[in-house]
């Protein structure tokens, strides 16, 4: 049984465009166009897609904020938008762009208030607070008002706020937006730990490096439709983008010395720099090519470039 089940989910927005002084045009935009997917308990899912693909809409439906126009969504035993109050007791949500904390109060006060709202028992609250302080490095900022925190500090505090009631699943809508590398690393490290502790994590982000280092699975959404779902490693091996091998030969290397490479590989040779570029379609060809090159030529520099996740996804988007 899957933890999250989304079946035939639809959501349309009506947009009014001004065409004249009083006239306006009605246009229906399909934000989610019959999407289906499932997520297992304990998964770390990366949910990506270009701006306007429908990512936020999906998160809003799954967190009970929004009711879909058709289809259904189920998380655990709940239909989020129907059993809102009972359902949200078990989820944590972080919106990278909006704060959930009391701006003028110290972080600890927000935690206490949320503890009250979620009815966390005193003992459990204390334990959870200690554990979060430890993992998110919160001790130094716990007694500072939220408005005084830096973006990185605030995001850590924000994650703590979303986890204070120890939910089973965490929804994150671009949590690392605008963070520096160190802060990002701290956040990512925390998320990995949570996931290893058995929490299900649903992450949307534009940062593909985050996705690559954090998630096992990935869902790609484009124009309201799911265009890829599966393991990230799989995506890389499925791509049609070539692997690029670059080799530096001694200067003034005569071109005709390369002639028997020509029989097996499509290559280009930059004579001025004596640089050889060969495009391979499969990873297993790399070793063979390297053997040939090193045996037969005096190779001074050698580089293999696999297509980056950015390039692969850019190709999928278009």
């Amino acid at each position: 049984m899957s933890y999250i089940t989304v079946k035939n989910l639809q959501k349309n927005y009506t947009i009014y465009e001004k065409t004249g002084r009083l006239k306006r045009n009605k246009r229906i935009v399909k934000a989610l166009n019959h999407i289906d997917f499932t997520v297992e308990e304990g998964a770390f899912l990366g949910y990506i897609g270009p701006n306007g693909a429908g990512k936020s809409t999906t998160i809003k439906v799954l967190t009970g904020i929004m009711t879909p126009d058709g289809g259904e969504a189920k998380v655990g035993d709940y239909v989020p938008y129907k059993d809102r109050k009972a359902y949200v007791q078990n989820i944590g949500v972080v919106f990278g762009q909006k704060t959930q904390m009391w701006w003028d109060l110290p972080v600890i006060d927000t935690y206490r208030l949320l503890g009250g709202i979620y009815k966390v028992p005193q003992k459990k609250f204390k334990h959870q607070l200690e554990s979060l302080c430890d993992r998110l490095d919160l001790d130094e900022i716990l007694h500072q008002p939220v408005r005084q925190l830096s973006l990185g500090q605030r995001m850590r505090a924000e994650l703590g706020a979303a986890m204070i009631h120890d939910p089973k699943i965490l929804f994150l809508d671009e949590p690392t937006i605008g963070l520096d590398i160190i802060s990002k690393q701290k956040v990512n490290h925390f998320l990995t730990e949570l996931n290893q502790g058995g929490k299900t994590i649903f992450l949307t982000t534009h940062d593909l490096k985050d996705i690559e280092s954090l998630c096992e699975e990935m869902l790609i959404l484009s124009h309201g439709e799911i265009i890829y779902k599966g393991a990230i490693a799989q995506l890389k091996s499925n791509t049609e983008l070539p692997i690029l091998v670059t080799a530096q030969l001694p200067l003034e290397q005569p071109l005709d010395a390369l002639h028997h490479l020509k029989e097996r590989y499509a290559f280009s040779f930059d004579q001025a720099r004596s640089q050889l570029e060969i495009q391979l379609t499969e990873k297993k060809q790399v070793a063979e090519l390297a053997r040939t090159l090193f045996q037969e030529y005096d190779i001074q520099d050698f580089r293999v470039d696999e297509p980056s996740i950015e390039e692969i996804i850019k190709k999928i988007y278009t």
């Binding site: 809003k60 967190t63 009970g64 904020i65 809102r84 109050k85 009972a86 949200v88 007791q89 989820i91 949500v93 919106f95 909006k98 704060t99 959930q100 949320l114 709202i117 979620y118 009815k119």
Partner: peptide
Amino acid sequence: LSGRFDTLLIRPA
């Protein structure tokens, strides 16, 4: 207008 209404909907109250 600020969209902060969303954050009220994700709390059990």
